[in-house]
Protein backbone atom coordinates (compact mmCIF):
# COMPACT_ATOMS: atom_id res chain seq x y z
CA UNK A 1 0.00 0.00 0.00
CA UNK A 2 1.45 3.38 -1.01
CA UNK A 3 0.68 6.60 0.77
CA UNK A 4 -0.63 9.59 -1.15
CA UNK A 5 1.07 11.96 -1.63
CA UNK A 6 4.58 10.50 -1.64
CA UNK A 7 7.39 9.75 -4.05
CA UNK A 8 6.65 6.04 -3.51
CA UNK A 9 3.06 6.53 -4.67
CA UNK A 10 4.06 8.39 -7.83
CA UNK A 11 6.83 5.84 -8.49
CA UNK A 12 4.26 3.05 -8.32
CA UNK A 13 2.09 4.82 -10.90
CA UNK A 14 5.15 5.50 -13.06
CA UNK A 15 6.06 1.81 -13.05
CA UNK A 16 2.52 0.87 -14.00
CA UNK A 17 2.22 3.22 -16.97
CA UNK A 18 5.72 2.39 -18.18
CA UNK A 19 5.08 -1.32 -17.78
CA UNK A 20 2.87 -1.64 -20.84
CA UNK A 21 2.07 0.36 -23.96
CA UNK A 22 -0.80 2.46 -22.61
CA UNK A 23 1.14 5.73 -22.85
CA UNK A 24 2.64 4.78 -26.21
CA UNK A 25 -0.86 4.28 -27.62
CA UNK A 26 -1.74 7.87 -26.74
CA UNK A 27 1.32 9.26 -28.52
CA UNK A 28 4.32 11.32 -27.54
CA UNK A 29 4.20 13.66 -24.56
CA UNK A 30 6.91 16.05 -23.43
CA UNK A 31 5.87 17.89 -20.30
CA UNK A 32 6.76 18.48 -16.69
CA UNK A 33 3.72 18.26 -14.45
CA UNK A 34 3.71 19.46 -10.87
CA UNK A 35 1.41 18.18 -8.14
CA UNK A 36 0.72 20.23 -5.03
CA UNK A 37 -1.08 18.72 -2.07
CA UNK A 38 -1.21 21.05 0.92
CA UNK A 39 2.47 21.81 1.70
CA UNK A 40 3.94 18.98 -0.37
CA UNK A 41 5.02 19.32 -4.00
CA UNK A 42 6.09 16.76 -6.61
CA UNK A 43 7.41 16.87 -10.14
CA UNK A 44 6.44 14.23 -12.73
CA UNK A 45 8.34 14.30 -16.01
CA UNK A 46 6.99 12.87 -19.25
CA UNK A 47 9.34 12.24 -22.18
CA UNK A 48 8.34 10.75 -25.52
CA UNK A 49 6.29 7.64 -24.62
CA UNK A 50 7.26 7.29 -20.96
CA UNK A 51 6.95 8.78 -17.55
CA UNK A 52 10.63 9.54 -17.17
CA UNK A 53 10.86 10.49 -13.52
CA UNK A 54 9.18 11.60 -10.30
CA UNK A 55 10.65 13.49 -7.37
CA UNK A 56 9.62 15.62 -4.46
CA UNK A 57 10.38 19.30 -4.90
CA UNK A 58 9.97 22.51 -2.96
CA UNK A 59 6.95 24.73 -3.52
CA UNK A 60 9.23 27.28 -5.15
CA UNK A 61 10.32 24.70 -7.72
CA UNK A 62 6.75 24.36 -8.96
CA UNK A 63 7.57 27.42 -11.03
CA UNK A 64 9.92 25.27 -13.11
CA UNK A 65 7.16 22.89 -14.15
CA UNK A 66 5.01 23.45 -17.24
CA UNK A 67 1.98 23.53 -14.94
CA UNK A 68 1.03 22.14 -11.57
CA UNK A 69 -2.20 20.69 -10.24
CA UNK A 70 -3.18 22.20 -6.92
CA UNK A 71 -6.04 21.11 -4.70
CA UNK A 72 -6.73 20.34 -1.07
CA UNK A 73 -5.90 16.90 0.30
CA UNK A 74 -9.64 16.22 0.53
CA UNK A 75 -10.21 17.11 -3.12
CA UNK A 76 -7.34 14.87 -4.22
CA UNK A 77 -8.72 12.03 -2.11
CA UNK A 78 -12.21 12.42 -3.56
CA UNK A 79 -10.83 12.26 -7.10
CA UNK A 80 -8.54 9.28 -6.50
CA UNK A 81 -11.14 7.30 -4.55
CA UNK A 82 -13.62 7.89 -7.35
CA UNK A 83 -11.09 6.61 -9.89
CA UNK A 84 -10.47 3.54 -7.76
CA UNK A 85 -14.13 2.80 -7.14
CA UNK A 86 -15.05 3.16 -10.80
CA UNK A 87 -12.30 0.83 -12.01
CA UNK A 88 -9.86 3.36 -13.40
CA UNK A 89 -12.20 5.85 -15.04
CA UNK A 90 -13.53 8.79 -13.03
CA UNK A 91 -17.05 10.13 -13.14
CA UNK A 92 -17.43 12.98 -15.62
CA UNK A 93 -17.50 15.52 -12.77
CA UNK A 94 -14.12 14.33 -11.51
CA UNK A 95 -11.92 14.31 -14.60
CA UNK A 96 -8.86 16.56 -14.45
CA UNK A 97 -10.42 18.79 -17.08
CA UNK A 98 -13.77 19.16 -15.30
CA UNK A 99 -12.14 19.88 -11.94
CA UNK A 100 -10.04 22.57 -13.64
CA UNK A 101 -13.06 24.04 -15.42
CA UNK A 102 -15.26 24.17 -12.32
CA UNK A 103 -12.63 25.48 -9.88
CA UNK A 104 -12.82 29.31 -9.82
CA UNK A 105 -9.04 29.61 -9.62
CA UNK A 106 -8.46 26.56 -11.79
CA UNK A 107 -6.82 23.23 -10.94
CA UNK A 108 -3.94 23.46 -13.45
CA UNK A 109 -1.76 26.49 -12.75
CA UNK A 110 1.25 28.21 -14.28
CA UNK A 111 2.68 31.67 -14.65
CA UNK A 112 3.09 31.06 -18.38
CA UNK A 113 -0.09 30.31 -20.31
CA UNK A 114 1.73 28.70 -23.23
CA UNK A 115 3.37 26.22 -20.82
CA UNK A 116 0.08 25.66 -19.03
CA UNK A 117 -1.48 24.72 -22.36
CA UNK A 118 0.43 21.42 -22.05
CA UNK A 119 -2.37 20.46 -19.66
CA UNK A 120 -4.82 20.54 -22.59
CA UNK A 121 -2.33 19.37 -25.23
CA UNK A 122 -1.66 16.06 -23.44
CA UNK A 123 -4.90 15.83 -21.45
CA UNK A 124 -5.45 12.14 -22.14
CA UNK A 125 -1.93 11.25 -21.00
CA UNK A 126 -2.27 12.98 -17.63
CA UNK A 127 -5.73 11.49 -17.08
CA UNK A 128 -4.35 8.05 -17.93
CA UNK A 129 -1.56 8.56 -15.40
CA UNK A 130 -3.97 9.19 -12.53
CA UNK A 131 -6.43 6.55 -13.78
CA UNK A 132 -3.68 3.97 -13.28
CA UNK A 133 -3.93 4.59 -9.53
CA UNK A 134 -6.95 2.28 -9.52
CA UNK A 135 -4.45 -0.58 -9.87
CA UNK A 136 -2.72 0.08 -6.54
CA UNK A 137 -3.95 0.37 -2.98
CA UNK A 138 -3.69 3.94 -1.76
CA UNK A 139 -3.47 5.14 1.80
CA UNK A 140 -4.35 8.78 2.27
CA UNK A 141 -2.34 10.95 4.58
CA UNK A 142 -5.39 12.91 5.67
CA UNK A 143 -8.50 10.71 5.93
CA UNK A 144 -11.60 12.39 4.54
Amino acid sequence: MAKFPSVEWFEAIKDLVNGDDRLRKLGTCDAIMGVKVEDKAFEITFEAFDCAGVREISEADLGNTDFYLEASAEAWQEMLENISQSGGKPDRQLTLNTIDFLAPEGFAKSDDQSRKDSFYRYGQTFQMFFNASAEIKTEFAVPA
Binding site: N97, D117, Y120, R121, Y122, G123, Q124
Partner: peptide
Amino acid sequence: FTLAAQDKAR
Protein backbone atom coordinates in the same frame (compact mmCIF):
# COMPACT_ATOMS: atom_id res chain seq x y z
CA PHE B 1 -13.92 17.44 -26.82
CA THR B 2 -10.86 16.21 -24.88
CA LEU B 3 -9.30 14.94 -28.08
CA ALA B 4 -10.31 18.07 -30.00
CA ALA B 5 -8.80 20.21 -27.22
CA GLN B 6 -5.50 18.33 -27.53
CA ASP B 7 -5.37 19.18 -31.24
CA LYS B 8 -6.37 22.79 -30.64
CA ALA B 9 -3.70 23.26 -27.93
CA ARG B 10 -1.15 22.01 -30.46
